[in-house]
Each structure stands twice: as structure tokens, then as C-alpha cells.
Amino acid sequence: MRDLVTTQWLARHLHAPDLRVVDVRWYLDPARKGREAHAAGHIPGAVFLDVDADLSGPGGGRGRPLGRHPWPSPEQVSRVMGGAGIGPGTRVVAYDDQAGAVAARLWYLLRAHGHDDVAVLDGGIVKWIAEGRPLTADVPSVAPASFPARLRAGFVLGKADVLSRDAARPLLDARAAERYRGDHEPIDPRAGHIPGARSAPFAGNLTAGPPPIFRPPAELRQRYADLGAEAAPPIVYCGSGVTACHDLLALHLAGLSGSLYAGSWSEWSADDSLPAETGERKALKRRGRREGPE
């Protein structure tokens, strides 16, 4: 199974006994609940996993030292994935309603813990609905599985890794450009970005739509080459370690790789001892092109 699957592929394989479809809809707006959206209608057979409770460790929150979505322990990953019926032989397809911005968190989390047979549904439930495909409110019966989680080296980094990174290794910020620049900061303690970071909004991985889907691998390769990812695998961050995984999926689709700074800006900005920059990063010349924010 490829890392990105189409709605047509999912429709053909929806009832395969080794396939687990996972709804990971989640919203920054606390008035909106992914679990409620799932209950109102989801792709048949899909289970629900919550970004806050299931795909993040304890102790997170706005303005807290660990950031908003701390990386979960292997023990938590084992428990959650096993409870969702995901084991070593399970193919997993994750979807959301934000063009993979949230679903990529599950894709990266599973790969980081040794489970490569996972994909994101391109276009998500928005494309599924637009094509007239079925939804259900039925709760599937799921047999628990055993999921042996072991974090792979290099997939997830911390503040110390970012502070000590080689200057030749790119640092990419997946947030919207206005948050990178520090024009405003509606969520986290400080505005701006980590010094030396380049702006790489996750929306730049997508077509215009509607609905938006991932750009072709060759276009993604050029995008990330212009951001320095061919010279060295970048460290990628966002607000809280969720949409950065969208950039990491795009890098993977482009034949490149990177690492996640899991605490991201919500952790960094909560530590007053750490520096921050605002404004645009000065563009660099590379092969006749300009590197910098898109």
C-alpha cells in the first residue's frame, strides 16, 4: 500500500479484513469536536482516534512547558493502537476533513513506531462525500490487537536537538506564513519563529482544489529542494507537532526525508529563555532560484 491512497482505492478495499480506516478529525476551535463529527457520519468501518487524548501524551495545553501536543510514549502508542485493532499485519488508512493536515499525524506516529503499512486518504472525507460515497453512523465492532511500539531513532527530536543542529541542516516551519512572520499569534505564548527557520506552510503541498489534494511528487520535490531538503534532511515543526507531519509526508512522497520537532512552536515559545525571530527570512540563492517562504 502506498503512503497516499485515493478515494477510489479505498472504496475498492474498504471491506478488506486486514484494513483499518481511522477518522482523526480534529479542530483548533474548541467548540468543534472531531468525535462529534465522527458520530454524525463517517466512512463505513472507520474507528475514531482523538489527537488530544490518543495521539498526544499527557501534560499538554496552551502555554504549558510541554507544548500543546506532547509526543506520546511507546506504551501509550501500544495501548491506543491495540485498542483500535491495529497490529503488525494491519493496513491503516487515516483521514480527516482538512486535506491530510491532521491525518498525517497518525501516518507519522505509526511510521515512527515501526509500522510502515499506513497511508493518508488523499482529499479525505471531503473528497469522499463530494463523490457521493457512503457515510454511516454505525459503530464498528473492533477486536483488540497487540501493537509492539518502539520509537525509531531520528524520527522525533526535542528542543536540545534543534538548539544543537548543524547550521547546514534546514529547519522548516509548517505554519501559515503570517504566523511564521509573527504578524499575529492567536494560540501560543509568543509570536514569530525559531531563529534560522524557513517558512514551508503545509498548504503549499496541496493543489488549489476543490477539494485540495497533494501535488505531484515532482512538484513536491522541487518545492523542498528549493528549501534545502536535498542538501540535508530538514527538521520540521509547526504549532504543536501536527501539521508538520503533513510536510514530512510531502517530503516522503518526494523521495526525501526529515525529522519532527515534536514540541514545535507551542513548546519553544513557552520557554522564555529561547530566542525568537519575526519577519521574513532573507532569501538565499540556489541554482538560480530563491529559497524562502512560499
Rank of each mutant, 00 (worst) to 15 (best):
V120C: 11
Y95W: 02
G196R: 00
P65V: 12
H42M: 09
A250D: 09
G83N: 02
L284K: 06
Y95A: 03
A130V: 11
A197K: 06
G89P: 00
A16N: 07
G114V: 00
H184T: 15
P211A: 15
T243N: 07
P211E: 14
G89N: 07
G209A: 15
K159F: 05
F214Q: 10
D188N: 05
P148M: 08
R169N: 11
A160I: 05
P211Y: 14
Q222M: 11
D166M: 05
E75W: 08
A232G: 04
G288Y: 13
L106E: 01
D226K: 12
A119M: 03
W265E: 08
D166Q: 10
G292K: 13
T243F: 03
V139R: 14
H252G: 10
G192C: 10
V24Q: 03
S266A: 03
A37Y: 00
L109R: 02
S273P: 01
G124L: 15
D226G: 15
H113D: 02
H184I: 07
E277S: 12
A53P: 00
P144R: 13
A174Q: 06
P148H: 06
Y180L: 14
L220Y: 07
L55M: 11
P134W: 10
P201A: 14
R152A: 15
A197H: 11
P144M: 11
A40I: 01
R68H: 04
V102D: 01
D161W: 04
P134E: 06
G82S: 07
P234V: 10
T136G: 10
H193N: 06
L135K: 08
R133F: 11
E36L: 08
N205E: 05
A137Y: 00
P195T: 08
R25K: 13
P234G: 09
D18N: 13
P234F: 07
G192I: 07
I43Q: 07
V92P: 00
A225C: 08
W71D: 02
P201C: 10
R25D: 01
E277P: 00
P186N: 01
C245T: 09
R20L: 01
R12D: 12
L106G: 01
H69M: 13
R91M: 04
D96W: 00
A231G: 12
V92L: 02
R133D: 08
S78H: 00
A232L: 11
A101H: 05
A254I: 08
A225F: 04
L110E: 01
R290F: 14
A130H: 09
D138F: 05
G60H: 04
P144S: 14
E219N: 10
H13N: 11
G209W: 13
L206D: 05
M1K: 12
E131A: 15
A200C: 15
A31T: 12
A130M: 15
D161M: 07
L253M: 10
K159M: 13
G255V: 05
Y224M: 09
P58H: 10
P189I: 10
L249V: 08
D23S: 03
F155T: 15
A153Y: 09
A153W: 07
D166V: 04
G263Y: 03
